[in-house]
Computed example of a mutant assay.
Amino acid sequence: MNRTWAGINAGKGHHHCVVINGEGAKLLSRRVMNDESELLNLLADVLELGDEVPWASKVTRFRKTPKDPDQSRWASPTTSTNSSPSGKAGP
């Protein structure tokens, strides 16, 4: 059995996919636009590389935190609390 693993970093405008084999060798690395035909072509190419292909995905949505005066730190909305001193959630 030819084991492969695929990972995709999904963005708003484009996505990046990497596929590795059981030894960790990179079999595919491709950036595709957020377009149905490009995504279907990518899926077909990935499925040609292995008998079973488990997928992992990462959706990146970052924004600057309003509490940071110099706006040099970034936070994900899923991990940022933006709590005020009163304990209530901020804007």
Rank of each mutant, 00 (worst) to 15 (best):
M33A: 11
L40A: 11
T79Q: 11
G22E: 15
R61G: 09
S57I: 06
G11W: 01
T65N: 07
N2R: 12
P85Q: 03
P85K: 14
E36A: 10
P91M: 00
F62H: 06
A89K: 13
G87Q: 03
P69E: 06
E23P: 00
H14D: 12
T4E: 03
E48I: 01
H16A: 03
A25G: 10
L49M: 12
K67A: 09
E23T: 05
L49V: 01
K88S: 07
R31K: 14
W55E: 08
E38Q: 10
M1Q: 12
C17H: 04
V32I: 14
P66M: 10
T4M: 06
L28T: 06
S29W: 06
M1I: 02
W74M: 08
I20A: 12
F62D: 08
G24E: 12
E23W: 02
K58D: 12
K12V: 04
H15C: 06
K58H: 14
D70L: 12
G24M: 09
L42N: 07
V53K: 11
D70Y: 05
N2Q: 14
V53G: 04
R30P: 01
L42K: 07
R73H: 12
L28D: 04
S80C: 08
L43Y: 06
A75C: 12
A75G: 15
V53P: 11
E48A: 14
E52P: 01
E48H: 10
Q71R: 10
G11F: 01
N2G: 04
W55R: 12
P66T: 09
M33H: 08
